[in-house]
């Protein structure tokens, strides 16, 4: 009894230097954002409690939230699909798989800002792709700033699929080879091996990395700012615009936008964890 509590205490002490600063910073900043959003910590003037920033722009906030959720969902879906396919290829093919693994590993260190700039240069109306295809004067579909945020989703899907692929490969590499061979000797076709052996084994890693990708793209700023439309805008873009506005009265609205983004992310995390636990319960 005392030994397990001693180990717990030791474990907590070891984790404390990492956890305590995170909790302090998060609690402090979220608390400050909450206070500013209800007018209790104004930039100038007396502190008066008011829920106006929360209720005043409901329509705009709802549109921005919808845009953020759409971009996050589409990016996660694409990144998960492409990432899983890449992981299956890496595990199945020993030599060319290593090439794909190297390309995935090279994609990860690229910052999203650089990636967004590159995608912008590639897919804009007078960009690289448009010039190669010989149509700089119209006719090229609108990816950057287009109606479906296609350039934004493409950038996220590209970068995050590499992340998903490497997470899945890392969690599977050891176990999958033998099981796939066993399935082959039992007469399974290659596609059946993927859907009945690799996919179920990869599901926890896929789910966790998918959750990470979803929450990350929900709060990411640079890509929708560089490659997205002016209106409606994603939650982080709206927050930064209002925060940097010359009108200091916009500050509470910026805090509301940020907190909404945090709430959406928290809801996604909780929902995702519940789903994961249920998945583990079924196996």
């Amino acid at each position: 009894m005392s030994e397990s509590s001693a180990t717990t205490r030791r474990g907590l002490l070891l984790a404390a230097p990492a956890v305590v600063p995170v909790v302090v910073v998060l609690a402090g900043s979220l608390g400050a954002a909450l206070l500013q959003s209800v007018g209790l910590m104004p930039f100038a003037g007396p502190a008066t409690f008011t829920l106006e920033p929360w209720t005043g722009n409901a329509g705009e906030l709802a549109r921005s939230a919808a845009v953020s959720l759409y971009i996050a969902a589409a990016s996660t879906l694409l990144a998960g699909t492409v990432g899983f396919a890449a992981a299956a290829y890496i595990l199945a093919m020993p030599r060319t798989g290593r090439l794909v693994a190297a390309v995935s590993a090279a994609t990860i260190p690229i910052p999203h800002l650089i990636g967004a700039g590159a995608v912008g240069l590639l897919l804009s109306d007078a960009g690289f792709l448009a010039r190669i295809l010989g149509m700089p004067d119209g006719g090229f579909p609108t990816f950057v700033g287009g109606p479906f945020w296609s350039a934004v989703i493409f950038e996220y899907a590209w970068k995050e699929s590499a992340f998903v692929a490497l997470v899945i490969v890392g969690s599977l590499a050891r176990s999958v080879g033998g099981l796939c061979d066993a399935a082959a000797t039992l007469g399974a076709a290659p596609l059946q091996r993927i859907t009945h052996v690799v996919l179920p084994l990869a599901l926890p890693a896929l789910a966790v990395s998918g959750l990470i990708v979803f929450v990350y793209t929900l709060g990411s700023y640079e890509v929708p700012w560089l490659l997205g439309r002016i209106s409606p805008e994603a939650l982080p873009v709206r927050a930064v615009r209002l925060f940097g506005s010359i009108d200091l009265d916009s500050r509470p609205q910026a805090m509301v936008t940020v907190l909404l983004s945090v709430l959406a992310g928290a809801a996604a995390i909780i929902g995702g964890l519940i789903l994961l636990r249920r998945m583990r319960g079924l196996r």
Partner: peptide, 22 residues
């Protein structure tokens, strides 16, 4: 440009459109 569905983000983006002949 683009039928007003979106606008350039700032002056630099507009200058780039101008330089590209858009």
């Amino acid at each position: 440009w683009r039928e007003g569905r979106t606008y350039p983000r700032d002056e630099q983006a507009l200058n780039r459109l101008f330089a590209n002949g858009e």
